[in-house]
Design a protein around this nucleic acid. Structure first.
Length: 266
DNA sequence: TTCCAGGACCCTG
DNA sequence: CAGGGTCATGGA
């Protein structure tokens, strides 16, 4: 399948550090979604993929009107610079369980190390599909031993991965219910998972539950927000979130991705 | 050797 | 509510 796309930069979208299980294989990016191998590459204004246009539109949020989003968030020279530099970067849709574990793994480490943990978890516990390891299910990780989870470089997060997977696998925690909750309730609910705090809950809401108003505050975002929006004044994460959600007109999540990538590369 | 990375959690004041 | 220490891991 080959089809035309508008306002997409596949490389920025998949390499900006929001998602950790797309692998570059030659010119293709490869992952597993819904039990199927996904293969996609960009050739100018076209995407070439083994799956349908609908699946890719879903995974890459091709229906988001980026021009409109840019109009809503481009309120000052800082965010304008970031948007200009990384035009075509989109929020990628993530499977909810996978996303929760991704970001539990993200605690107090860096992007290469997160990728390493996620890769090892997939190789050790995931199903092999056309030579590519899918990310494991909640049932599989719930049944893993702490010691085996630690062999995946997860360190002190191994216990969180196991407990959270158990809660989800046994349905004591209803991960599907979140779709129907409002942003505030969904965040409160997600924080109940061990290893999930405000920041990770916002990541999950943004990447897996379409809450484009979510604004995850990590060390990079905190630094850049304090520097440019709070006159270098120490500011609580909660205040930064509130400011951003108001300032960026409902699309704080998109603003966050551009600022995050820009902060790290400048 | 020390510091830091897409933090959460626990304990104090 | 704010401020610290702690938790494994690996690269600079």
């Amino acid at each position: 399948m080959r089809f035309k796309v508008k306002n997409l930069n596949l490389k920025h979208t998949l390499e900006c550090g929001q998602t950790f299980r797309w692998q570059k294989v030659g010119d293709d990016y490869v992952t597993v979604w819904n039990g199927k191998l996904v293969r996609v590459r960009q050739e100018g204004d076209y995407l070439v993929t083994n799956l349908s246009k609908e699946v890719l539109a879903y995974l890459l949020r091709l229906d988001d009107d980026l021009a409109e989003i840019y109009r809503k968030i481009s309120k000052d020279k800082i965010i304008k610079q970031a948007v200009e530099k990384y035009k075509g970067l989109r929020i990628a849709r993530e499977d909810p369980f996978q996303c929760v574990i991704f970001y539990i793994c993200s605690a107090n480490t860096n992007i290469p190390n997160i990728k390493k943990q996620v890769l090892k978890l997939s190789e050790r516990f995931g199903k092999k599909i056309n030579g590519f390891y899918a990310f494991p299910t909640a049932e599989k990780l719930a049944g893993a031993s702490i010691s085996d989870l630690r062999k995946c470089s997860t360190g002190f997060k191994a216990k969180y991965i196991k407990k959270t997977s158990q809660l989800i696998a046994t349905k004591k925690f209803d991960i599907d219910k979140i779709k129907k909750m409002n942003y505030h309730d969904a965040k409160e609910y997600l924080i109940q998972l061990p290893g999930v705090g405000n920041k990770i809950a916002d990541c999950v809401l943004l990447f897996a539950y379409d809450r484009l108003e979510a604004f995850p505050v990590d060390v990079w975002i905190k630094r850049i927000m304090q520097k440019y929006y709070f006159k270098n004044k120490k500011t609580s994460n909660e205040k930064i979130v509130k400011f951003a959600q108001d300032y960026f007109n409902g699309y704080a999540g998109y603003a966050q991705e551009y600022l995050f990538y820009w902060a790290k590369n400048s």
